[in-house]
Write a protein that binds this DNA or RNA. Structure first.
Length: 304
DNA sequence: ATGTTAGCCTGCTGGC
DNA sequence: TGCCAGCAGGCTAACA
């Protein structure tokens, strides 16, 4: 489940492709790709013309830069083209280096998950570069999106324009943070933290972990958080996200790095995916509830 | 306006 | 052992 730290990890891996020129693309799931600032409408399934346009736009383009905004990967190409990639739930990007004969990866971080040689049945996009390097895009649930967008149309990409501030931005203060979330005083703090329009990049894993370290229950309303807690929440958020980036993210389900390795932050999880297990601080069993249709894990003793 | 829910998808898990 | 409902969650669309 890629969130800010996982996407940042993928972006770091993708930067190895800077300077390379796209030779060809293979796309076996047409619904994944589109041309233009918006995602494709449902009727796309019956129309293949956008696949041709997508390939035409990218063929021969050179990668100039790779960056992240919220959970969106932005690949800047020459001739004013961009690729906007959202991994959603199960998107994976694996790079085969120039001269590397084959790539074998364990697609899931589970003991009995087989090691697959790429491309495998979940590989839906393959990008080949002139120097022999390759990019494989795997997506089990096919929720991901790849958009080819012209520079002038970037401002029409609604999701991109609506993202809230970046939590790790140096100019982002705890007061900005409080003001952003306080736009929705009646929302539960768990939901507010995962709302991309309020604050960018935080999803289910890190919202749970941040709230644990702040000792705030996920069900607490935004308006019931006091100034001291805002300051703490802000500090914890930065600390947790920075540590997770350093550890190359969490591999709870499908996430892997572009080199096929798993992320290490899962070893540091205090509550996420630990239902019924003992709290690492007080030994109380971790609880799981559903908030806004999403699972939320917390320690009923440590969090108030 | 805010708030809630279904849908997109497939593979794994747990209960029988 | 095998079957199958339920679950996983980022995001949008549709609705109250």
């Amino acid at each position: 489940m890629p969130e800010l730290p996982e996407v940042e990890t993928v972006v770091s891996g993708l930067r190895k492709l800077i300077g390379k020129k796209i030779k060809s693309l293979e796309i076996t799931k047409p619904k994944l790709v589109s041309v233009g600032p918006g995602v494709l409408s449902p009727k796309r399934i019956h129309d293949q013309s956008h696949v041709r346009k997508f390939k035409q736009a990218l063929q021969g383009r050179k990668i100039l830069a790779v960056q992240r905004r919220a959970k969106l990967i932005q690949i800047r190409l020459d001739k004013d083209w961009w690729i906007l990639v959202h991994l959603k739930m199960t998107g994976q990007i694996i790079i085969q280096n120039r001269g590397q004969k084959e790539v074998r990866v364990r697609l899931m971080n589970t003991p009995n998950s087989p090691i697959e040689k790429l491309p495998c049945k979940h590989t839906h996009i393959i990008i080949s570069f002139y120097d022999g390097a390759r990019l494989y895009y795997n997506d089990v649930r096919v929720f991901g999106t790849w958009r080819a967008v012209k520079n002038r149309d970037l401002k029409l990409a609604k999701d991109l324009q609506d993202f809230g501030p970046e939590p790790l931005d140096k100019n982002f203060t705890w007061r900005d943070f409080k003001n952003q979330l306080s736009q929705r005083p009646n929302l539960k703090i768990k939901q507010a933290l995962t709302e991309q329009k309020l604050i960018a990049g935080i999803g289910n894993i890190y919202s749970d972990e941040i709230l644990f370290w702040t000792k705030i229950l996920p069900t607490r309303l935004v308006k019931k958080i006091n100034p001291e807690e805002w300051l703490k929440l802000f500090g914890v958020m930065k600390k947790v996200l920075k540590k997770a980036v350093k550890e190359c993210g969490s591999s709870v389900g499908d996430f892997i790095q572009t080199n096929g390795k798993i992320g290490n932050y899962g070893n540091y999880h205090m509550v996420y995916d630990r239902k019924g297990l003992a709290c690492k601080i007080c030994k109380s069993p971790i609880k799981r509830i559903v908030i806004g249709g999403r699972s939320s894990h917390y320690c009923p003793h440590c969090q108030r």
